[in-house]
Design a protein around this nucleic acid. Structure first.
Length: 121
DNA sequence: GACCTGACGCCCC
DNA sequence: AGGGGCGCCAGGT
């Protein structure tokens, strides 16, 4: 068999994909951060960009989605511009005890949380 | 309807 | 080891 093909987003309803991303994002423990790639990898759907695309619609979902806990692989707060203010993301993370320096999560490797760590699904 | 960009990340040079 | 290119999928121009 060839390499297992990652399921395309087209194979599922986009709304379902949205829900999945939101769900996983909401499971990120306070004080921890996750990455777009980790979520995409866990869902085995689309790509990291899709996660960002989905989170871009989180403003539609009134629910309190801790999108500020999702950063890129480098730990950079790449999505800060999409919040109410460019500093909200940093402020929220700092409020949770996450140290931020120059828009980058300090000790990213330590604080990184992979959905795989979820004991119960 | 084609092209480019985007809250990314891996592979290749 | 650092930088650049390509893939990913959807939306906007």
């Amino acid at each position: 068999m060839t390499t297992e093909k990652r399921t395309s987003v087209k194979d599922v309803k986009n709304d379902h994909y949205f829900q999945k991303v939101f769900d996983v994002t909401c499971m990120i423990p306070p004080g921890r951060v996750s990455t777009y790639g980790a979520i995409a990898d866990f869902l085995a759907l689309g790509s990291a960009r899709m996660v960002g695309w989905a989170l871009n619609n989180c403003h539609s979902a009134d629910s309190q989605i801790p999108a500020h806990r999702v950063v890129n692989r480098k730990g950079e707060l790449s999505g800060r511009r999409h919040f109410s203010t460019p500093t909200i993301m940093e402020e929220k993370l700092k409020n949770e005890g996450v140290e931020i320096q120059d828009n980058v999560v300090v000790h990213m490797q330590e604080l990184f949380w992979h959905p795989r760590e979820m004991k119960e699904y």
